[in-house]
Design a protein around this nucleic acid. Structure first.
Lengths: 227, 227
DNA sequence: TCAATAGTGTCTGTTAGACATTATGGA
DNA sequence: TCCATAATGTCTAACAGACACTATTGA
């Protein structure tokens, strides 16, 4: 065997696993995966196996950390630039993934969820990945219905709206949100209701996208304006 | 010196250089950069030098191929998955770049511009990169004013609209386009006109973005609908 | 003069956001 | 009963798209 095809891959795959816990976005971190002193947390990472696709490796690593496969997974970018990484590899390919809220977590063990506002210090390269994951997810929102990756099979429209608000980082108008939702044919009511403390029970919905002709209206040049 | 820090980088940087020629998008290809038989074209690529950032390497490669630096350059993604590449490296990090139309081309030599509809057969991995570049540029359009990267310093509003139409792959309404442009504070008229054959001469503009409060209106959930 | 392109004003149907109202449960 | 939340109807200002019109050049 040639040296080239036998050696371990000269790069790592790192996965940013995101979920929604108590109205906040959380990221899954692992306690110092390779032997690394003191209290240090890191994104799950590994080197890919032989002849494994990038996506495939990312899925495998996510599954190993989480116990289940994430609903949505996409590459963020390659990172390097001399920034430190738990492994000593020149570059790392980062993936972002969304986990349905309520998915049984890797209890105890060396994994834990951290709210985005309260993430411990990471290796600089992984810190970049986390930031990249957030902007990637946010920018994908207007191209695919990403929010459903954070929700369980059944959800209320209020939960769905809260997830959108969490990702967009802004409040949405209830009536407008529901009208837009109806126009987009993304969800379908099911014959079940959930009572949340006081108030009228909310009907449950499920994600059931229907094919549509692409939206006609809108140039939306405003969004492309200067910062 | 350790073997790790002395060896050549185990990955490549590939650059998708795009420009606008005669109302079409063109990509810059290089005639078989490493000794490779027959008539074969490839995206410009190289391995990064020691301690060079990913962006820096991409800029250097772009400049080597083009003679000038591209106005806009951004990472697309890492590609691998066993797809063939002109170099025999496990992965490649691809960058997309926009070149102002009219930039003096690398005349003769081993470089040439190819219209997107008429690209010769590429190495599979580089074909993926080209497709990735296109969808990346298109998806960035509603986040930053990407179109100006394809235009020279001075341009007419009709040229600007044609560039938008080229990138969006659809016709735009003239009056609406100009209204949106005015609202976005992206351009500024200069005291110069250009006569293009018949008709009334068009005023020239230049890119001069002004800071604005983010657009208020629009949930635009439609765009996130099912395909 | 006509032809061709640049640039602008007005109208109309659509819709985001605001507001108000009804519906339905728990305390 | 009062309160809290769900869900929906109506109004209005903003705006995308259509159309028509004026402006200014070359042929």
């Amino acid at each position: 065997m040639s040296e080239r095809h036998n050696r371990r891959s000269p790069y790592t795959i790192d996965v940013v696993l995101l979920t929604q816990i108590k109205g906040q976005l959380d990221v899954l971190l692992c306690r110092a995966p390779p032997p690394e002193g003191r209290e240090k947390w890191a994104l799950p990472w590994e080197t890919p196996r032989n002849d494994e696709s990038l996506d495939g490796a990312a899925r495998r690593i996510a599954k190993a950390a989480l116990g289940a496969e994430p609903g949505w997974l996409e590459q963020i970018a390659a990172f390097g630039d001399g920034k430190r990484h738990p492994g000593d590899f020149e570059i790392s390919v980062a993936f972002g993934a969304l986990v349905a809220m309520g998915t049984p977590s890797p209890v105890g063990g060396s994994y834990a969820w951290f709210p985005l506002g309260d993430v411990p210090q990471l290796f600089p390269r992984q810190r970049q990945m986390l930031d990249g994951a957030m902007s990637m997810v946010r920018s994908r929102m207007d191209q695919e219905p990403v929010a459903f990756g954070l929700l369980p099979q059944m959800f209320t429209l209020t939960e769905l709206q809260q997830t959108y608000e969490l990702l967009l980082e802004k409040r949405l108008h209830k009536a407008s949100f529901r009208r837009a939702l109806q126009a987009a044919w993304l969800v379908e009511p099911i014959d079940e209701w959930r009572s949340e403390g006081r108030g009228r029970p909310a009907q449950l919905y499920r994600y059931a996208p229907r094919k549509r002709r692409p939206a006609q209206r809108g140039i939306r040049l405003d969004l492309a304006a200067a910062r």
